[in-house]
Simulated scan of single mutants.
Amino acid sequence: MADITKRFGLLHLRAAPTAHIRHLRGGTVAHEGTGLAFWFRPLAAAISEVPADDRELSLLCHARTAEFQDLAIQVTLTYRITDPELAATRLDFSIDPETGAWRAEPLEQLGTLLTETAQQHALELIARTTLAVALAEGVRTVRRAIAEGLADDARLAELGLVVLAVRVTALRPEPELERALRTPAREQVQQEADRATYERRAVAVERERKIAENELANRIELARREEELIAHQGVNAYREAEQQAAADQVRAEAEAQRRTRLATAEAEAAVLLADAQAAAERALSEAKAAGQAAWLAAHQQASPEVLQALALGRLAENLPKIDSLTLSPDLLTGLLAQLGRPAPAGGAR
């Protein structure tokens, strides 16, 4: 939309670079072109604004196939007005000089024309096509049919309108029919998936069988090696027992020899000890005999009183312990009488 400002009773228009402006004053062209900017009087001006940029138009149409099945076709058109002067004379692109807005709806008219024309070519093509072909090749054929039909349309050429591109974004049947059509493909995919599952299971079973065979072979090999190990262990144990027996025999012989030598040494030592003890006992006996003889010889020369005193002394040594002693007058009288007697000649008192 053009930008219009008011200054001192005059209006100034400034157009976008993609807008074609046609200014008529008094029935003659005063200004014409894209991206214009000029002053004008609103009461004497007739201005048209034709877009010169590329425009997008999306449309949705329903068509019936040769089997009377409904198809929804979604198409996007790209168009441009290549002859703005011609379009301004065929459609109402006039704008309000005060606001710059279109007085009519020219773009809606162009959209309706393009939609109906594209639908016509799509319906004609789909009506001659079966559902399977339409679903398989419909996008390409519908795009080509619409593009060729719009390019050959005289009405569009008279309006200076050119369709630059046609894109078919979707071509779908009814939801129930679409689900029915998907069923065989889904079943086939499911069958392929089941087949892949069965093959995977078969491969897994085969691998498990090989694993079981390998485990069994490993167990057999392990049992064989254990048998060899047990045999080797028996041989080693037998050899170890033989060696142990030989070592025990050697140790027994050595111990017997040691004990024999020890017994011999002990016997010799016992003989020497017995000889020494016998010699000591003989010497002791001889010494006792000599002492006894000397003791007897000494006592033979002593008087009876001395012997009696010695006997009393030895008796006193061997008497039990006496806690108290009672002396009677009779005993003391006798002892005193004996002490008062004169001693015999050559004797002791």
Rank of each mutant, 00 (worst) to 15 (best):
M1Y: 05
D3N: 13
T5D: 05
I21L: 15
R25L: 09
G27K: 10
H31F: 08
E32A: 15
W39M: 04
F40A: 04
L43K: 06
A45C: 13
E49N: 06
V50H: 01
V50A: 02
D53R: 13
L57Q: 08
L60F: 04
A66V: 12
E67D: 07
D70S: 11
I73Y: 06
Y79N: 02
E85P: 05
S94T: 12
E98G: 04
A101N: 10
P106C: 03
L107M: 12
L110F: 04
L110P: 00
Q119M: 13
I126Y: 01
A127T: 07
L131H: 02
A134Y: 01
L135W: 01
G138C: 03
R143Y: 02
L156K: 05
T169S: 13
P175I: 01
A180Y: 06
P184C: 06
E192M: 10
A196M: 05
R201D: 14
V203F: 12
R209P: 00
A212W: 07
L222I: 00
R224C: 00
V235L: 15
A237S: 08
E240Q: 10
E242K: 13
Q243C: 00
A247K: 06
D248S: 13
R251K: 12
E253M: 14
R258M: 15
R261I: 14
A263H: 09
L273Q: 14
E281M: 09
R282Y: 13
L284W: 12
L296T: 07
A298V: 07
Q308C: 04
A311L: 13
A316Y: 00
E317D: 07
I322F: 03
D323W: 05
L336W: 02
A337K: 07
Q338V: 09
